[in-house]
C-alpha cells in the first residue's frame, strides 16, 4: 500500500490513535484474563517492591512482621515481571519513536510553577506518595480498579474511576486555575 504523503511506519510514529490504543488495551485484557487468569494491574505488585526496598531503611524484621507486607511479599511472580515488562516496553517504544529524552520539568508545570527542578521533583515525590497510598487504600490504581475493575462492571472499579476523576478535576482547577486564555 502506498500513500501519497510519506508517513513514518507504525513503529516510528510517536503517537497512535487513542481509540486504537484503548481498544488494544481492551484486547490485551482479554488475553490476560483468559491465559493468565488475572486482571491487568500495577500497584499490587508494586507493594511487594516497596517492602523489599524498605528493608535496608526499616530493617528486615519490621518488614517481615508487617501483616500487609506478609500478604504482599516481594517475589518474581507474574505481576512483578509484568512491571518489568512495562518498563521494557516504554523504553523500547521511546527508542523506536526517537522520543527518548531526559525530562526534568514538563512544559505545563513550567508555565505555572517555573523551571525549578527541586520544586518539580518534590511535587513528583509527594504526589507519588499520595497516589500509592490512595491506590492501596482503594485496593487498585488506574489499571487495577479504573480499567480492570470497570471493565468487569465492578462497583468498586466505577466508584474509583468516577471519584478519581472528580477529585482530579478539582485538584487541577485549584493548582492551575480555570482560566482558558493560555494555551497548551
Amino acid at each position: 500500500m502506498s500513500t501519497p504523503v510519506a508517513k513514518p511506519g507504525l513503529l516510528r510514529q510517536s503517537r497512535w490513535n487513542p481509540y486504537a490504543v484503548g481498544a488494544a488495551i481492551g484486547v490485551l485484557s482479554w488475553v490476560v484474563f483468559a491465559l493468565v487468569d488475572k486482571p491487568l494491574g500495577v500497584t499490587t505488585s508494586l507493594t511487594g517492591l516497596a517492602g523489599a526496598c524498605a528493608v535496608p531503611v526499616l530493617g528486615a524484621e519490621a518488614i517481615a512482621s508487617n501483616d500487609y507486607f506478609k500478604a504482599h511479599a516481594f517475589k518474581w511472580d507474574y505481576g512483578m515481571v509484568f512491571l518489568g515488562g512495562i518498563a521494557l516496553g516504554g523504553f523500547l517504544s521511546s527508542l523506536l519513536a526517537g522520543t527518548f529524552r531526559a525530562e526534568a520539568v514538563p512544559s505545563v508545570w513550567r508555565e505555572r510553577f517555573g523551571g525549578s527542578v527541586v520544586k518539580r521533583m518534590s511535587a513528583a515525590f509527594v504526589g507519588g506518595i499520595l497516589a500509592m497510598y490512595g491506590a492501596r487504600l482503594a485496593d487498585g490504581c488506574t489499571s487495577g480498579n479504573g480499567i480492570s475493575g470497570s471493565l468487569q462492571l465492578a462497583v468498586g472499579g466505577w466508584t474509583f474511576f468516577l471519584t478519581l476523576f472528580a477529585v482530579g478535576v478539582i485538584t487541577a482547577a485549584l493548582l492551575f486555575g480555570t482560566r482558558r486564555s493560555s494555551n497548551s
Partner: peptide, 22 residues
C-alpha cells in the same frame, strides 16, 4: 476505603502527573 483512596489518588495523580503504570 475506595472513595477515600480514589480521592487521595486523584490529588496525587495531578500533583505527580502520572499514575503508577504510566
Amino acid at each position: 476505603g475506595v472513595t477515600l483512596g480514589a480521592a487521595i489518588f486523584g490529588v496525587g495523580m495531578v500533583v505527580y502527573g502520572y499514575c503508577p503504570g504510566t
